[in-house]
């Protein structure tokens, strides 16, 4: 309880100038996080440079909660690459492997078929009704790097929002009461 009382005292003893400084430092933290995210978007050329794996369809390669780093260059898409794609009418992007590619001679457009390594069949059942192939504009990026487990933080926070609020509250309190 001593710690709580101490924190309460420090909140009560805040001066206007101090409150402003704390506000500015909080703003700095938020904006620098935003800067890093936007810079990553510029470097990788992908609208979401980092994605969390949500399903087990690529096991044992990628498990739920792993993080993938995406890159979107103008290089043509080739079989074997792991791509992240959006299907019309589905909100959540899917991470699967390309198994077939047909590239047009004249326009350079591609028809792509994907499949999850752990799924029995290809992805035509997941695509929009009647859609046989993915085109370039469906694809958000290809996976280039991998980091295990880190994505659990976001999975837990989206599935148990209460933990998110507790965490944000605690961090906010820490920033407000810090005396540096």
């Amino acid at each position: 309880m001593g710690w709580v009382a101490e924190q309460m005292d420090s909140i009560k003893s805040l001066q206007i100038r101090q409150v402003l400084t704390q506000g500015v430092s909080l703003g700095m933290i938020v904006t620098s996080a935003l800067i890093i995210w936007k810079a990553l978007m510029c470097i990788t050329g992908s609208e979401s440079p980092v994605v969390v794996v949500l399903s087990g369809s690529m096991e044992p390669g990628f498990k739920r909660g792993d993080i993938l780093f995406l890159h979107m260059s103008n290089d043509p898409i080739r079989a074997g690459e792991i791509v992240v794609f959006n299907v019309d009418g589905r909100e959540i992007p899917i991470v699967h492997r390309v198994i077939k590619v047909h590239e047009r001679e004249d326009t350079g457009e591609v028809d792509v078929l994907t499949k999850g390594d752990n799924n029995y069949g290809d992805d035509r059942l997941l695509y929009a009704h009647g859609q046989l192939w993915l085109q370039r504009h469906h694809i958000m990026g290809r996976a280039v790097g991998f980091l295990p487990y880190v994505g659990w933080v976001t999975i837990i926070m989206t599935e148990k929002p209460i933990i998110k609020y507790i965490l944000i509250g605690a961090l906010g309190l820490l920033v407000i009461t810090s005396k540096d």
Binding site: G61, P76, R78, A79, G80, R97, I99, K100, V101, H102, E103, R104, E105, G108, D117
Partner: peptide, 20 residues
């Protein structure tokens, strides 16, 4: 390691076909 064998060929319409 993920290993796959693909057939790759050209057709008049398509400059590249890759079929796993």
């Amino acid at each position: 390691a993920f290993v796959f064998l693909s057939a790759e060929y050209e057709t008049p319409k398509n400059s590249l076909n890759q079929v796993s």
